[in-house]
């Protein structure tokens, strides 16, 4: 196999000069693969993904040791914007749509981040609408008024508008109904097969992640502890009991991220 698209080797991450969020995490992502990052609450999934996009400095975090390489580039010495323009694009945990912008405007910000020409942007827009037909119907609506699933699709579509080579997703299944999760993962899988898009995704929902990923890395308390093919991991008894045994994984995700009570007008 050729050189991996992304290598994370032995990173240690510290927030506020005091909180050690990652002690020793390594992940390798081969070109054209789907790699899942599995772990419980607070294991360090989001921190790892933010490190991958060099977003930690914006949260007063820092990589104190280790190295991240994206296609030969030293990630930690490259600004998030430059990484986006060289094809490493993130979909953040909790979607982070621009709520007051319409769905279509959200998508266009992805093109603006890449610096696409207008013609490229409108072609990409058609592609996103083709992948997520629901977004086309809602294109003029403020994204803050769309459903959770539609917001996740908007966030993914926005990232796709930047023409990624590596798409990094943080818990795309969070808080969504099983049918919607299914639809989103099928689309990701289709992008992987049709366009050769490499995907790196963090999930608590190991069941769905291991169904669609080729390989996975498990992290616990800021350490990567296990790496194997998805099929091998699915068969392991410890993974089964820890991550797959619970029928209420989805309920756990809901409890972690409860729907906010209505804000009084």
């Amino acid at each position: 196999m050729t050189t991996p698209l992304l290598t994370i080797s032995g990173i240690r991450a510290v927030y506020n000069h005091s909180v050690v969020a990652l002690s020793d995490v390594s992940v390798t992502i081969g070109r054209g693969s789907i790699v899942a990052l599995l772990g419980a609450n607070g294991a360090g999934k989001t921190t790892t993904l933010h490190a991958t996009a060099n977003l930690l400095p914006a949260e007063r975090g820092r990589i104190a040791a280790g190295k991240i390489t994206f296609d030969g580039q030293d990630v930690l010495a490259t600004s998030p914007g430059t990484l986006v323009r060289s094809g490493l694009v993130s979909v953040l945990e909790g979607r982070h749509c621009f709520k007051s912008l319409s769905v279509e405007e959200n998508l266009i910000t992805g093109a603006a981040g890449r610096g696409s020409r207008r013609r490229e942007a409108s072609a990409d827009l058609e592609r996103v609408y083709d992948l997520f037909p629901r977004l086309k119907a809602k294109r003029r609506i403020s994204s803050g008024l769309t459903s959770g699933g539609e917001q996740q699709m908007t966030a993914i579509g926005r990232a796709l508008m930047a023409r990624p080579r590596l798409l990094v997703l943080d818990e795309p299944s969070m808080g969504l109904a099983p049918l919607v999760i299914e639809e989103i993962f099928k689309t990701l899988s289709r992008l992987n097969k049709e366009d050769g898009l490499t995907i790196f995704l963090a999930e608590q929902n190991a069941a769905i992640a291991l169904r669609f990923a080729h390989r996975a890395t498990v992290i616990e308390n800021g350490h990567s502890v296990l790496e194997d093919t998805a099929a091998a991991l699915r068969a392991r008894p410890d993974i089964k009991s820890f991550y797959l045994g619970k029928a209420d994984l989805h309920a756990a995700a809901e409890a972690r991220n409860p729907t906010p009570s209505p804000v009084p007008a």
Binding site: A58, V89, H96, C97, F98, T109, G110
Partner: peptide, 14 residues
């Protein structure tokens, strides 16, 4: 307007 809405997301989008 995007930055005004969500600065972190704006950074992530590039």
């Amino acid at each position: 307007r995007a930055v005004a809405d969500d600065q972190f997301a704006a950074l992530a989008v590039g």
